[in-house]
Design a protein around this nucleic acid. Structure first.
Length: 581
RNA sequence: GCACCCGUAGCUCAGCUGGAUAGAGCGUCGGACUUCGAAUCCGCAGGUCGUAGGUUCGAAUCCUACCGGGUGUGCCA
């Protein structure tokens, strides 16, 4: 049960009947400062003007009725007309006890499930994945799982950049510099080497550039030899990608790269022309928004940049593919939504794309979920010593090896209880988990500062803190000879720490829904952190195994629910947990 | 030039569908291990919410202008 939704519904109908209104008012339910209560209702101030009455009088009348509800222990009026609600603890405890035996932990499905395509990760092929791809991959995967968790039909799609100009360059480059031995040994590195050489030569050698364009044209026309080369490039990169995804524990439902839409591009361009959306200019065909008339978002009214769908050399570019992709998603899945987890720097492109889709009459909610760059501790974009963008795999290797150092230190000093045979797994779960948590906990669509040293400090709001609480809980159950899985007992709230923990636990369904609906995984990070903190406080002051009878069972139940929310919540973020650490 | 994003504690950041005395982590300082795991817990200190106006019973949150930073801006993705 979503507590906030449930209470808002209750409050709304109570307000309606208490005040004799025609419609159900928005109760303006907000979480309150604990000093005042659990929730506050601010509707009285808003309704005062409409009803021509004093806000305090309205509040008094409503409060009297609200206090009669089972869920409400007290409803008091304060200040100009705030209604402070305090939850009935027995009621709250009963709801938590229910959620303990619910496999979904109280996360109810949305009323209207949708089919949603989440477009994420999407690296360019024939290149190694670099640091810039980690955010889309991690954030995107979390969003897929969150949307699925609240009941939507979700298709996670890796929209690979597997088509385009770079393949013409690679084909001619391969003829000139290709080294078969290196290609077999470390294919992606060799492809990158060739690409860099070719890319540089293109700018100085017109004949070479022409040859690359010709090679691309041949590939696009289905020339078997070019096609075979392209397939080889794909196989080589796919292997490297799979290694990264395995490491991150990320999977996809579809791998529909740009190449999958090639035979539809001609048609897309034709459609755009037919609808009068695209026109020719300087040899290229594009959508010029200012010329279209009708309402436009502000950012497209003044920015003159057209949305190019066919270049002057006749080739299509990524915008064309993106339009084709939207049409395909409608056609194949009748998708209600497409979500693009892509760098904020592509914001203009998506605004244009969405406007084109709208003008084509596509009924689909299109959202660009942007995110910023990863900066180093100095506030500048992360760079390698030679100024390049760091590769993803070595970056993960480094994080994991730092985690290993810390874990070995911890084991030597006796703070950590990881058996020899479990060290490798623990290092992976903790190291990768720390990287993911650090990334996901940020909300901002702007850049975020990443300090590898701090990452692995393992204190405060960081992945390992959450994992540690899970290990503590599991160890209580082990020591007490109890089974965590399926454990159930009535929850009783007596100690202040128990009450505080219970209030946090009650918010889990709200947190999951809010995170999914607003594409903000950091809300799950926040919740999981609050559970961990509240649990840790409870753990310090409330003995579990030494308690007796119902109190012991209740405390075990609080432990179990905390563990479930931590493990499950982290799982939605793609972060694992351990039995011992 | 135009468009988008950002400016909150020493540092990194939450909070922004408007609600009461603006919160965390790190860092500083001080407490707590004979008791279920101290990678933990408890406490102190720390703020002109970039600036100036406006709307409102009420503004970090909405609007306007300005200052400062970032990003994008015709055939890369």
């Amino acid at each position: 049960m979503r507590l906030s939704k449930h209470l808002a519904d209750l409050a709304s109908s109570t307000l309606q009947s208490a005040l004799g209104l025609d419609e159900r008012p928005d109760p303006l339910l907000r979480p309150a400062d604990p000093k005042h209560g659990d929730y506050q209702l601010n509707a009285a101030m808003a309704l005062a003007k409409k009803l021509g009455r004093k806000p305090r009088d309205i509040a008094e009348e409503a409060a009297t009725e609200l206090a009669k509800l089972d869920a409400i222990a007290s409803a008091d009026v304060a200040g100009p007309g705030f209604i402070n609600l305090r939850l009935e603890e027995a009621w709250l405890a009963a709801r938590l006890t229910e959620s303990l035996s619910d496999p979904k932990l109280g996360v109810d499905p949305v009323d209207q499930p949708e089919t949603i395509v989440v477009d994420f990760s999407s690296p360019n092929t024939a290149k190694e994945m670099h640091i810039g791809h980690i955010r889309s991959t991690i954030i995107g995967y979390a969003i897929v799982q969150l949307l699925r968790e609240i009941g939507h039909e979700v298709i996670g799609d890796n929209h690979l950049g597997d088509w385009g100009t770079q393949f013409g360059l690679l084909i001619v480059g391969l003829r000139e510099w290709g080294d078969e031995a290196k290609l077999k040994e470390d294919g992606v590195a060799e492809l990158e080497r060739i690409y860099k050489l070719a890319s540089a030569k293109k700018n100085e050698d017109e004949a070479f550039a022409d040859a690359a364009r010709a090679a691309l044209a041949e590939l696009q026309q289905g020339d078997p030899e070019s096609r075979a080369l392209w397939e080889r490039f794909m196989a080589i990169t796919r292997e490297a990608f799979d290694a990264v995804y395995a490491r991150l524990g990320v999977t996809f439902d579809e791998w529909l790269g740009e190449s999958a839409y090639q035979d539809r591009l001609e048609g897309v361009v034709g459609l755009l022309q037919e609808k009068g959306l695209a026109k020719e200019d300087q040899g290229a065909l594009g959508v010029f928004f200012q010329d279209l008339g009708g309402e436009l978002p502000k950012s497209l009214r003044k920015v003159k940049t057209p949305f190019i769908v066919r270049k002057k050399d006749g080739a299509f570019n990524y915008g064309t593919t993106d339009v084709a992709t939207i049409l395909y998603r409608k056609e194949r899945w009748n998708a209600d939504r497409s979500v693009y987890v892509v760098d904020t720097r592509q914001g203009l492109h998506f605004q244009q794309l969405f406007e084109v889709a709208k003008r084509l009459g596509v009924e689909m909610e299109l959202t660009h979920v942007g995110f910023g760059k990863i900066l180093g501790p100095d506030g500048k974009p992360l760079r390698t010593r030679d100024g390049g963008v760091p590769k993803l795999m070595p970056f993960l290797d480094e994080a994991v090896s730092k985690a290993r150092e810390r874990i070995e230190e911890g084991r030597e000093s006796g703070r950590l209880r990881i058996a020899d045979e479990d060290v490798d797994e623990a290092v992976k779960v903790i190291g990768i988990g720390a990287v993911k948590y650090a990334d996901l906990m940020q909300n901002r669509t702007t850049d975020y500062r990443f300090d590898p040293e701090k990452l692995i400090e393992f204190k405060g709001q960081a992945g390992p803190y959450m994992q540690f609480q899970v290990a503590r809980i599991r160890s209580i159950f082990e020591k007490g000879g109890e089974t965590l899985e399926g454990f159930s007992a009535p929850i009783l709230l007596d100690h202040d720490r128990e009450k505080a923990l219970a209030r946090v636990l009650a918010r889990y369904p709200d947190a999951i829904h809010a995170a999914a609906e607003t594409y903000q995984p950091h809300l799950v990070c926040d919740h999981v952190y609050e559970v961990a903190t509240a649990f840790s406080g409870f753990y310090d002051d409330c003995p579990v195994l030494d308690a007796e009878g119902d109190a012991r069972a209740s405390r075990l139940a609080l432990c179990a629910l905390s563990e479930h929310q931590l493990a499950h919540g982290l799982g939605l973020l793609g972060i694992g947990v351990l039995d011992k650490m």
